[in-house]
Amino acid sequence: MDLLLTVELGVVAAGAAILGSMLGLGGGVFLVPIFTLFLGIDPKLAIGASAVVVVVNSVVGSSVHLRSRFTNLRLAMLLQVTTALGAILGALFGVGADPSIVYLVFGLVLVYAAVSMGIPRSNKLVALAADPMRLGGIYHDPATGDEVPYVPVRIAPGLGVSLGAGVLSGMLGVGGGVVMVPAMNLLMRVPVKAAVGTSAFMVGVTSVATAFVFYANGKLAPDIIVPAVVGVFLGGQVGSRLTRRIRAQRLSLLFGVILLYLGLSLVLRALGIELPGQQK
Protein backbone atom coordinates (compact mmCIF):
# COMPACT_ATOMS: atom_id res chain seq x y z
CA MET A 1 0.00 0.00 0.00
CA ASP A 2 1.42 3.40 -0.93
CA LEU A 3 2.14 6.14 1.60
CA LEU A 4 -0.47 8.51 0.14
CA LEU A 5 -3.28 6.00 0.67
CA THR A 6 -2.02 5.30 4.21
CA VAL A 7 -2.16 9.04 5.00
CA GLU A 8 -5.61 9.29 3.38
CA LEU A 9 -6.85 6.39 5.52
CA GLY A 10 -5.52 8.07 8.66
CA VAL A 11 -7.05 11.46 7.84
CA VAL A 12 -10.41 9.94 6.87
CA ALA A 13 -10.39 7.82 10.05
CA ALA A 14 -9.70 10.95 12.13
CA GLY A 15 -12.58 12.76 10.43
CA ALA A 16 -14.88 9.78 11.00
CA ALA A 17 -13.89 9.71 14.68
CA ILE A 18 -14.54 13.45 15.11
CA LEU A 19 -18.03 13.04 13.66
CA GLY A 20 -18.63 9.81 15.57
CA SER A 21 -17.54 11.11 18.95
CA MET A 22 -19.58 14.31 18.55
CA LEU A 23 -22.64 12.15 17.91
CA GLY A 24 -21.75 9.53 20.53
CA LEU A 25 -21.79 6.84 17.84
CA GLY A 26 -18.10 5.89 17.75
CA GLY A 27 -16.01 5.96 14.58
CA GLY A 28 -17.11 2.67 13.04
CA VAL A 29 -20.42 3.93 11.74
CA PHE A 30 -18.62 6.38 9.42
CA LEU A 31 -15.38 4.46 8.90
CA VAL A 32 -16.60 1.55 6.79
CA PRO A 33 -18.81 3.56 4.39
CA ILE A 34 -16.15 6.21 3.79
CA PHE A 35 -13.33 3.64 3.37
CA THR A 36 -15.37 1.64 0.88
CA LEU A 37 -17.23 4.39 -0.99
CA PHE A 38 -14.44 6.96 -1.32
CA LEU A 39 -11.14 5.06 -0.92
CA GLY A 40 -12.11 1.85 -2.70
CA ILE A 41 -11.12 -0.43 0.21
CA ASP A 42 -12.46 -4.00 0.12
CA PRO A 43 -15.56 -3.91 2.40
CA LYS A 44 -14.50 -7.05 4.32
CA LEU A 45 -11.08 -5.54 5.12
CA ALA A 46 -12.76 -2.24 6.09
CA ILE A 47 -15.13 -4.11 8.42
CA GLY A 48 -12.24 -6.08 9.99
CA ALA A 49 -10.31 -2.83 10.54
CA SER A 50 -13.38 -1.15 11.98
CA ALA A 51 -13.90 -4.00 14.48
CA VAL A 52 -10.33 -3.57 15.77
CA VAL A 53 -10.77 0.22 15.93
CA VAL A 54 -13.96 -0.25 17.98
CA VAL A 55 -12.04 -2.51 20.41
CA VAL A 56 -9.30 0.11 20.88
CA ASN A 57 -11.89 2.88 21.29
CA SER A 58 -13.76 0.81 23.86
CA VAL A 59 -10.60 0.16 25.88
CA VAL A 60 -9.82 3.90 26.00
CA GLY A 61 -13.43 5.07 26.48
CA SER A 62 -14.35 2.44 29.09
CA SER A 63 -11.56 3.62 31.37
CA VAL A 64 -13.27 7.00 31.61
CA HIS A 65 -16.74 5.54 32.20
CA LEU A 66 -15.39 3.04 34.77
CA ARG A 67 -13.76 5.87 36.69
CA SER A 68 -17.09 7.74 36.72
CA ARG A 69 -18.85 4.48 37.74
CA PHE A 70 -21.37 4.89 34.92
CA THR A 71 -20.73 1.32 33.73
CA ASN A 72 -23.10 -1.33 35.07
CA LEU A 73 -20.93 -4.46 35.01
CA ARG A 74 -23.73 -6.92 35.86
CA LEU A 75 -25.99 -5.55 33.13
CA ALA A 76 -23.07 -5.49 30.66
CA MET A 77 -22.22 -9.14 31.33
CA LEU A 78 -25.84 -10.30 31.11
CA LEU A 79 -26.52 -8.53 27.80
CA GLN A 80 -23.08 -9.53 26.54
CA VAL A 81 -24.07 -13.21 26.45
CA THR A 82 -26.49 -12.65 23.56
CA THR A 83 -24.54 -9.75 21.99
CA ALA A 84 -21.31 -11.75 21.70
CA LEU A 85 -23.22 -14.76 20.38
CA GLY A 86 -24.94 -12.52 17.81
CA ALA A 87 -21.62 -10.95 16.85
CA ILE A 88 -20.08 -14.34 16.03
CA LEU A 89 -23.12 -15.35 13.97
CA GLY A 90 -23.13 -11.97 12.20
CA ALA A 91 -19.39 -12.11 11.51
CA LEU A 92 -19.56 -15.69 10.19
CA PHE A 93 -22.35 -14.57 7.83
CA GLY A 94 -20.77 -11.22 6.94
CA VAL A 95 -17.27 -12.50 6.20
CA GLY A 96 -18.63 -14.79 3.48
CA ALA A 97 -21.60 -12.72 2.32
CA ASP A 98 -21.93 -11.04 -1.03
CA PRO A 99 -20.75 -7.40 -0.63
CA SER A 100 -24.07 -6.10 -1.99
CA ILE A 101 -25.88 -7.66 1.01
CA VAL A 102 -23.40 -6.02 3.40
CA TYR A 103 -23.85 -2.66 1.62
CA LEU A 104 -27.64 -2.95 1.80
CA VAL A 105 -27.76 -3.84 5.51
CA PHE A 106 -25.16 -1.19 6.39
CA GLY A 107 -27.08 1.41 4.37
CA LEU A 108 -30.32 0.61 6.17
CA VAL A 109 -28.56 0.77 9.58
CA LEU A 110 -27.19 4.24 8.72
CA VAL A 111 -30.64 5.43 7.62
CA TYR A 112 -32.00 4.08 10.93
CA ALA A 113 -29.19 5.88 12.82
CA ALA A 114 -30.03 9.14 11.02
CA VAL A 115 -33.73 8.79 11.88
CA SER A 116 -33.04 7.69 15.48
CA MET A 117 -31.08 10.91 16.07
CA GLY A 118 -34.44 12.62 16.05
CA ILE A 119 -35.79 10.41 18.86
CA PRO A 120 -35.22 12.20 22.18
CA ARG A 121 -33.41 10.21 24.88
CA SER A 122 -35.21 9.83 28.19
CA ASN A 123 -33.66 11.49 31.24
CA LYS A 124 -36.77 10.96 33.35
CA LEU A 125 -36.08 9.29 36.68
CA VAL A 126 -38.21 6.17 36.98
CA ALA A 127 -39.49 4.93 40.35
CA LEU A 128 -37.31 2.09 41.62
CA ALA A 129 -38.82 -1.33 40.98
CA ALA A 130 -38.13 -4.72 42.52
CA ASP A 131 -34.76 -6.09 41.42
CA PRO A 132 -34.78 -9.89 41.38
CA MET A 133 -31.86 -10.01 38.90
CA ARG A 134 -29.69 -7.70 41.07
CA LEU A 135 -29.11 -5.43 38.06
CA GLY A 136 -29.91 -2.12 39.75
CA GLY A 137 -27.22 0.53 39.99
CA ILE A 138 -26.53 4.01 41.31
CA TYR A 139 -24.10 6.69 40.17
CA HIS A 140 -23.24 10.30 40.89
CA ASP A 141 -24.04 12.65 38.02
CA PRO A 142 -21.45 15.47 38.08
CA ALA A 143 -23.59 17.58 35.72
CA THR A 144 -26.50 17.82 38.18
CA GLY A 145 -24.76 16.87 41.43
CA ASP A 146 -27.48 14.24 41.99
CA GLU A 147 -27.23 10.55 42.71
CA VAL A 148 -29.09 8.57 40.10
CA PRO A 149 -30.49 5.19 41.21
CA TYR A 150 -32.10 2.90 38.65
CA VAL A 151 -33.30 -0.64 38.11
CA PRO A 152 -33.33 -1.95 34.52
CA VAL A 153 -36.67 -3.42 33.41
CA ARG A 154 -37.82 -5.57 30.44
CA ILE A 155 -34.76 -7.82 30.66
CA ALA A 156 -35.95 -10.50 28.21
CA PRO A 157 -36.72 -8.04 25.38
CA GLY A 158 -33.39 -6.35 26.16
CA LEU A 159 -31.58 -9.66 25.65
CA GLY A 160 -33.40 -10.08 22.32
CA VAL A 161 -32.39 -6.61 21.13
CA SER A 162 -28.81 -7.35 22.24
CA LEU A 163 -28.76 -10.43 20.03
CA GLY A 164 -29.86 -8.31 17.06
CA ALA A 165 -27.30 -5.61 17.89
CA GLY A 166 -24.62 -8.32 18.05
CA VAL A 167 -25.56 -9.72 14.65
CA LEU A 168 -25.36 -6.24 13.08
CA SER A 169 -22.11 -5.55 14.90
CA GLY A 170 -20.54 -8.78 13.68
CA MET A 171 -21.72 -8.34 10.13
CA LEU A 172 -20.80 -4.65 9.79
CA GLY A 173 -17.89 -4.16 12.19
CA VAL A 174 -19.67 -1.40 14.11
CA GLY A 175 -19.77 -1.57 17.90
CA GLY A 176 -23.52 -1.92 18.26
CA GLY A 177 -23.81 1.10 20.55
CA VAL A 178 -26.03 2.76 17.95
CA VAL A 179 -28.64 0.10 18.82
CA MET A 180 -27.76 -0.68 22.44
CA VAL A 181 -27.78 2.84 23.92
CA PRO A 182 -31.34 3.68 22.77
CA ALA A 183 -32.48 0.13 23.66
CA MET A 184 -31.11 0.33 27.19
CA ASN A 185 -32.42 3.86 27.67
CA LEU A 186 -35.85 3.71 26.07
CA LEU A 187 -36.70 0.02 26.49
CA MET A 188 -34.93 -0.96 29.72
CA ARG A 189 -35.22 2.46 31.41
CA VAL A 190 -31.48 2.75 32.08
CA PRO A 191 -30.45 6.43 32.43
CA VAL A 192 -28.49 7.79 29.44
CA LYS A 193 -25.10 8.04 31.16
CA ALA A 194 -25.32 4.50 32.55
CA ALA A 195 -26.47 3.25 29.12
CA VAL A 196 -23.55 4.96 27.37
CA GLY A 197 -21.01 3.73 29.97
CA THR A 198 -22.35 0.17 29.88
CA SER A 199 -22.46 0.18 26.07
CA ALA A 200 -18.88 1.50 25.83
CA PHE A 201 -17.69 -1.52 27.81
CA MET A 202 -19.89 -3.96 25.89
CA VAL A 203 -18.88 -2.89 22.38
CA GLY A 204 -15.25 -3.84 23.06
CA VAL A 205 -16.19 -7.40 23.98
CA THR A 206 -18.66 -7.63 21.08
CA SER A 207 -16.12 -6.36 18.56
CA VAL A 208 -13.48 -8.79 19.83
CA ALA A 209 -15.86 -11.64 18.97
CA THR A 210 -16.18 -10.10 15.48
CA ALA A 211 -12.47 -9.34 15.04
CA PHE A 212 -11.35 -12.90 15.83
CA VAL A 213 -13.72 -14.30 13.18
CA PHE A 214 -12.31 -11.85 10.61
CA TYR A 215 -8.79 -12.74 11.75
CA ALA A 216 -9.57 -16.43 11.28
CA ASN A 217 -10.54 -15.61 7.68
CA GLY A 218 -7.44 -13.50 6.93
CA LYS A 219 -9.47 -10.27 6.83
CA LEU A 220 -7.45 -8.21 9.34
CA ALA A 221 -5.07 -6.04 7.33
CA PRO A 222 -2.46 -4.16 9.44
CA ASP A 223 -1.82 -1.70 6.58
CA ILE A 224 -5.44 -0.53 6.97
CA ILE A 225 -5.82 -1.09 10.72
CA VAL A 226 -2.77 0.95 11.81
CA PRO A 227 -3.72 4.26 10.10
CA ALA A 228 -7.34 3.68 11.13
CA VAL A 229 -6.45 3.13 14.81
CA VAL A 230 -4.09 6.14 14.90
CA GLY A 231 -6.56 8.37 13.02
CA VAL A 232 -9.54 7.35 15.14
CA PHE A 233 -7.59 7.79 18.38
CA LEU A 234 -6.44 11.32 17.44
CA GLY A 235 -9.83 12.22 15.94
CA GLY A 236 -11.61 10.96 19.04
CA GLN A 237 -9.51 13.28 21.22
CA VAL A 238 -10.33 16.26 18.98
CA GLY A 239 -14.00 15.25 18.80
CA SER A 240 -14.44 14.98 22.56
CA ARG A 241 -12.89 18.43 23.04
CA LEU A 242 -15.04 19.93 20.27
CA THR A 243 -18.13 18.34 21.83
CA ARG A 244 -17.51 20.31 25.02
CA ARG A 245 -17.25 23.59 23.09
CA ILE A 246 -19.92 23.11 20.45
CA ARG A 247 -23.50 22.21 21.09
CA ALA A 248 -23.57 19.02 19.10
CA GLN A 249 -27.37 19.08 19.10
CA ARG A 250 -27.20 22.14 16.88
CA LEU A 251 -25.18 20.15 14.39
CA SER A 252 -27.38 17.08 14.60
CA LEU A 253 -29.33 18.06 11.48
CA LEU A 254 -26.09 18.32 9.46
CA PHE A 255 -24.81 15.01 10.84
CA GLY A 256 -28.19 13.42 10.18
CA VAL A 257 -27.92 14.50 6.54
CA ILE A 258 -24.37 13.03 6.30
CA LEU A 259 -25.57 9.72 7.78
CA LEU A 260 -28.55 9.70 5.42
CA TYR A 261 -26.29 10.42 2.41
CA LEU A 262 -23.86 7.62 3.35
CA GLY A 263 -26.74 5.24 4.08
CA LEU A 264 -28.51 5.90 0.79
CA SER A 265 -25.16 5.72 -1.07
CA LEU A 266 -24.61 2.22 0.33
CA VAL A 267 -28.16 1.15 -0.55
CA LEU A 268 -27.61 2.44 -4.11
CA ARG A 269 -24.21 0.68 -4.24
CA ALA A 270 -25.99 -2.54 -3.25
CA LEU A 271 -28.28 -1.98 -6.23
CA GLY A 272 -25.28 -1.42 -8.50
CA ILE A 273 -25.66 2.38 -8.72
CA GLU A 274 -22.62 4.57 -7.99
CA LEU A 275 -22.85 8.27 -7.20
CA PRO A 276 -20.30 10.73 -8.65
CA GLY A 277 -16.97 10.94 -6.75
CA GLN A 278 -17.23 7.43 -5.33
CA GLN A 279 -14.90 4.54 -6.09
CA LYS A 280 -15.65 0.96 -6.98
Binding site: V52, V55, V56, S58, V59, S62, M77, Q80, F201, G204, V205, S207, V208, A211, F212, Y215, L220, P222, I225, V226, V229
Partner: peptide
Protein backbone atom coordinates in the same frame (compact mmCIF):
# COMPACT_ATOMS: atom_id res chain seq x y z
CA UNK B 1 -3.11 -5.44 17.26
CA UNK B 2 -3.62 -8.88 18.85
CA UNK B 3 -2.74 -7.44 22.27
CA UNK B 4 -5.50 -4.81 21.90
CA UNK B 5 -7.90 -7.59 20.85
CA UNK B 6 -7.15 -9.71 23.90
CA UNK B 7 -7.72 -6.86 26.44
CA UNK B 8 -11.56 -7.12 26.55
CA UNK B 9 -11.19 -10.90 26.98
CA UNK B 10 -8.84 -10.32 29.94
CA UNK B 11 -11.34 -7.77 31.33
CA UNK B 12 -14.10 -10.39 31.16
Amino acid sequence: ILWFMILPVLAT
